[in-house]
Design a protein around this nucleic acid. Structure first.
Lengths: 93, 93
DNA sequence: AATATAGGCAAGCAGGGGCTTGCATGTCAA
DNA sequence: TTGACATGCAAGCCCCTGCTTGCCTATATT
């Protein structure tokens, strides 16, 4: 639970989630490429790999390995608990 | 927007939000007391004050000063954008 | 077999964030 | 007015985190 909040605290990781929402099943190099193209993020492959580890640990990304490739998908379930924790309307309690 | 994610990344700040949702209009010392009582958080007054600054900057807390006292309320509006950014059902795109 | 591709592991660095400490400001009460 | 109370401001410390660098493993390709 704490991992989820920490995971989405980083702007690069949020961009990764955006990418995976738009197109699931991407590999590490594909993600790196799209982050450069569409978000101007020029971090190294290892940096993105570490971000994916964090996202996987939080359950926000699920991965499947096939041969030498690893494909990643977005998973929004862990976000549900966050949405239900605090009221999002304008009330001030 | 980035401030909102950063604000809710800290567990102490999330506890403060929980407290203010449960009871609005609390002062700094009241919040400190309740954090100790109900969450076991023994941070100093200044630490909590700095947390409140972050929450205010993110728009998650609104404050009103009256005399020497400052009262705080929770405001959930900034959270709406987060909820709408990513899908929260089980789909994997 | 040799090379290239996709990814993993680990150490090290630098910056930021949370916390503390100490002092200053402003307001209310006696 | 004097003192107590509620808060603000600023400097410093320490740890965590994001990033890089370098090397290693494993799977395809030719």
């Amino acid at each position: 639970m704490d991992d989820v909040f920490r995971a989405i605290a980083d702007p690069t990781r949020r961009a990764i989630l955006d990418e995976l929402v738009q197109r699931g099943g991407q590999t590490l190099f594909e993600i790196c490429g799209r982050l450069v193209m569409k978000h101007g993020i020029r971090s190294s492959r290892q940096a993105i790999s570490q971000h994916l580890e964090v996202l996987e640990a939080a359950g926000l990304v699920v991965a499947k390995k096939e041969g030498r490739c690893k494909f990643h998908w977005f998973n929004g379930k862990p976000l549900k608990a966050i949405l239900e924790r605090w009221p999002t309307d304008g009330r001030r309690s």
